[in-house]
Design a protein around this nucleic acid. Structure first.
Length: 583
RNA sequence: GCCCUCGUAGUUCAAUGGAUAGAACAGCCCCGUCCUAAGGGGUUAAUCCGGGUUCGAUUCCUGGCGAGGGCACCA
């Protein structure tokens, strides 16, 4: 629809002799200004020195043939020279019917035939899965799904740091704590890391011991450490699997730092001679200053790889695994943004990985802060993903008290995940997020549960209609979808009369495919979130004002409800937010 | 010090160079139910401060001020 209008305007401009105009066709923020609007006359008149309104009139005259197609009901000039398009009732109905019945209605072809790798979540074994990983997961999954809706073949990968100083810290801490009696092994590992990390900063001898262990972990030279390493790694990975399941992510590949470091070390060694890397104070560094960045250490003075070298190795591993990528996306916290630039700059100088480096795009997320200012849980110094999920689930349970639900636990989990993901995905990526557990669960206002609730109301209505033998007739929907409002050949049920006016609910709903496309184009899922929030609000208003079952517009009302249900379902799926049957 | 991000109602977020800067929460006022009121309606309230480009700037450039992140062997 948007494209059709765009093309028509383009053709009109061509006829008027000015094809090179950079105009847009957009959804006006106020429906009073039509279903679509263009600034073509404003932009073009700048070049011509004519008044925008006069020129808008000329464009409209050229457009007139397409208005007779029955798509456009009216075209008006408004404001400084916008051209506003008002869609016909028939074409809006047709879109609503498609939304209700066509599974791929909202999809697009922006990435058809493209293969995209998305790396996200990236928790580290031996450390807790914390809320930052939750954010990375929410964003990565939503971007993956948005790209899939755009036709991409998406490879989800997860890069987990199973070697490095943090592992040594955890193992050292574990050894200090003794091995007896702790029923919650993973909790103990989390605490072990905290202990090790703290002593590393404050205790010189502990620091030395940890560094010693770090070396042994890389070398696999110590039996006791090997045993602890194996055990701790397994415990962590098992635990992560459980979280991925709850969050709804399935990774195609897992990469580990234990695999990437030897590759990275080799890459760095191979490029000291040619001057990409330099020795400095016993370490091997890349002088980022030559490209306007800063120096970073790739191999420390013990000869061990830092995160930098491992990431170079990771690029090579990715290339080996999937050698025909069109795009490779990495999602991390934004504190790594500057680091990432340096690492990529180095990679672009290495023939082995420059190809994938050039296709790599870094997307960052901010930190999650809590509205009450607390960053810490009672005992530790961070909030874990598991504890946040559990708290939210408990809160959801409380809110649902009094409801009779088939599976309250599952619903509470879905609501908890929805509440967290919505909060992360409602704003543009890269910014810090203020998380208010109370608000995120509240239905008085924008929230994941608010979207879920609107969906369940629609579903409940459809269930009831079905129980009464009412259904959105596939036949009628199909005819509507063909653009034949109520074809004369078909007997038109009394209840199926088309309403005279189209509500803002349907006039908004039909823009969903454009929103999905924009989210894919900009890799910004929050456009979807914002749209769904608006749509849910419109549905709730409509729902409160209209009686569907038993009304004169029953058939159409059910069709519209179905269209809303399908759109919300698709939208939530894109965001990776669970869609409960009831709540 | 240098390099990145970012500054929008009291608060949390929107706004591909365009129309009267949208929501939500909090505040105040309404709707007691019939398909889920965990809802709906109304109302008060904002672009950090200067310059510049433009028919038009929250958006682009520039100078302040303020916040966050990064800058050598952590990830």
């Amino acid at each position: 629809m948007q494209q059709a209008i765009f093309d028509a305007i383009q053709a009109a401009l061509q006829e008027l002799g000015i094809p090179e105009v950079d105009f847009v066709v957009e959804r006006p923020s106020d429906l009073a200004n039509g279903d679509y609007a263009t600034n073509a006359a404003l932009v073009a008149s700048k070049k011509l020195g004519k008044s925008p309104k006069e020129f808008a009139q000329e464009i409209i005259e050229k457009l007139s043939p397409s208005t007779s197609l029955g798509i456009i009901e009216a075209i008006k000039i408004a404001g400084p020279g916008f051209i506003n398009f008002y869609l016909s009732k028939e074409v809006i109905t047709k879109e609503v019917a498609e939304a209700a019945t066509k599974a791929d209605w909202a999809n697009n072809n922006l990435y058809t035939g493209k293969k995209v790798m998305v790396e996200f979540t990236d928790p580290n074994p031996f450390k807790e899965f914390h809320i930052g990983h939750l954010m990375s997961n929410a964003i990565g999954e939503a971007i993956s799904r948005t790209l899939e809706a755009a036709g991409a073949n998406v490879i989800r990968v997860n890069y987990q740091g199973d070697v490095g100083l943090h592992v040594a810290k955890a193992i050292w801490g574990y050894q200090q704590m003794g091995t007896e009696e702790n029923p919650i092994l993973e909790g103990k590992w989390g605490m072990a890391y905290v202990l090790g990390a703290e002593k590393y900063e404050t205790d010189e001898s502990a620091k030395a011991e940890i560094q010693e262990r770090n070396k042994k972990i890389y070398e696999r030279s110590d039996d006791e450490i090997n045993k602890l390493y194996k055990e701790g790694r397994e415990v962590s990975l098992q635990r992560f699997e459980n979280i991925y399941r709850i969050l709804g992510t399935q990774f195609t590949h897992f990469f580990f730092e234990s695999q990437s470091w030897p590759v990275g070390v080799k890459l760095v060694h191979a490029h000291i001679k040619d001057g990409v890397f330099e020795m400095s104070d016993g370490a091997v560094v890349f002088k980022g200053e030559k490209v306007g960045l800063h120096t970073r250490v790739f191999l420390n003075s013990q000869g061990l790889p830092t995160y930098e070298a491992k990431d170079l190795g990771l690029l090579e591993l990715k290339e080996e695994k999937e050698n025909d990528l069109d795009l490779s996306i990495t999602i991390t916290a934004n504190e790594q943004t500057e680091y990432f630039k340096v690492m990529l700059a180095a990679a672009k100088e290495l023939p082995e990985v420059q190809d994938i480096a050039n296709k790599t795009q870094h997307i960052s997320h901010g930190m999650m802060r809590f509205a009450d200012g607390k960053m810490s849980s009672r005992k530790g110094n961070f909030i874990t993903g598991v504890s946040l999920l559990a708290d939210m689930q408990r809160g959801a349970h409380q809110k649902m008290q009094g409801r009779e639900l088939k599976d309250a636990n599952k619903t509470a989990e879905q609501v908890a995940v929805g509440a967290i993901k919505f909060t992360v995905l409602k704003q543009g990526s890269g910014k810090d997020i203020v998380f208010d557990p109370e608000k995120s669960l509240s239905l008085e206002g924008d929230s994941g549960p608010y979207l879920q609730y609107a969906l369940t109301r629609a579903r409940s209505l459809l269930r009831k209609a079905e129980a009464e033998g009412l259904r959105v007739s596939a036949e009628a929907a199909e005819l509507l979808a063909k653009g034949e409002a109520w074809p004369s050949g078909l007997e038109r049920p009394e209840s199926a009369a088309l309403p005279l006016e189209r509500s803002s609910l349907e006039r908004t709903l039909i823009h969903f495919p454009e929103v999905v496309a924009r989210a894919a184009r900009e890799l910004e899922p929050h456009y979807v979130t914002t749209f769904l929030t608006e749509l849910a609000s419109l549905f709730n208003s409509w729902y409160a004002a209209e009686r569907v079952i038993g009304s004169a517009d029953e058939t159409y009302g059910l069709l519209l409800t179905k269209a809303f249900e399908q759109t919300m379902l698709k939208g939530l799926a894109l965001l990776g937010i669970p869609a409960p049957e009831e709540m």
